[in-house]
Design a protein around this nucleic acid. Structure first.
Lengths: 136, 136
DNA sequence: AGCGAAGTTACGAATTTCGTAACGATAAAG
DNA sequence: CTTTATCGTTACGAAATTCGTAACTTCGCT
């Protein structure tokens, strides 16, 4: 994690689909070096994943889930991450145990998710907040 | 924005650097169609940007902020988005008004952020949760 | 049926990615 | 001071992907 890594990340944050060759030009190194470093950052977990920020124009929400004390929270979280409209799944400290960020086609989509979550017997509580606006 | 668009987005959410050819295979169409549709979604703003989820520091946290009723929440959110370790800024419904997702170097970094938030007089309350783990 | 618009497929050329080998710098060991 | 090992960078050809464009379908409308 040095200055060059940070510069590469800065470029990728702006546009994660930009080719290595262009990143190399803009940070002043070769394609191979950019590739090596991105690979390394992926392996070490500095880069968690490449993703896409969407605004389907419809609905985004944050769903907080309480998980039964007797249950493997990581397993639940992993299963939730499989669901398609889910952007992020975080295990958190505090009141709730798991937080989902979802971007669904419509309210029905969000409702489906909540219903499916409630149907898992490991899940003991849900709270939903709509994401009204996103800055950045 | 039809079902095919949504399927393409679902693939991109998991890995935004996957080639169009592979997306095409996995959703059952041609490379050209995927390309056309991604271009269109970029133009219409459905896709805001391709980005990278990072964990450059050791601490990630979700900070919930209450904003004074008399205050322009969007303005506050916009100012918060300028801060360096902040990944996302959302205005949400429910208890809190604004939620920040931060990726800081250490606990001090997170604490700084909370302190600075508390110092803004528009901010009337803060709750912090550590993000213990993230699923992809 | 005929027409136009929108979307999809086809395909060759340009570009990028990928695997691998050579090269260079740095640091520890002899 | 030279040697050796390690790590990162560069080089380069082959494979894969992207890109521009043209032909082809599909669908709705008159």
């Amino acid at each position: 994690m040095d200055e060059l890594d940070r510069e590469i990340l800065d470029v990728l944050r702006r546009d994660a689909r930009i080719p290595y060759t262009e990143i190399a030009d803009s940070v002043g190194t070769s394609e191979g070096t950019v590739r090596n470093r991105v690979d390394r950052m992926l392996e070490t977990g500095v880069i968690e994943r490449f993703t896409v920020a969407t605004r389907t124009g419809n609905i985004k929400a944050m769903i907080e889930l309480g998980v039964d004390v007797a249950v493997d929270t990581t397993g639940v979280a992993r299963r939730l991450a499989e669901w398609d409209p889910v952007d992020f799944v975080w295990q958190v400290s505090g009141e709730a145990d798991v937080v989902l960020i979802v971007d669904a086609a419509d309210t029905t989509g969000v409702n489906d998710l909540i219903t499916r979550a409630r149907d898992m017997d490991e899940i003991v509580s849900t709270t939903t907040r709509l994401i009204l606006d996103e800055q950045r």
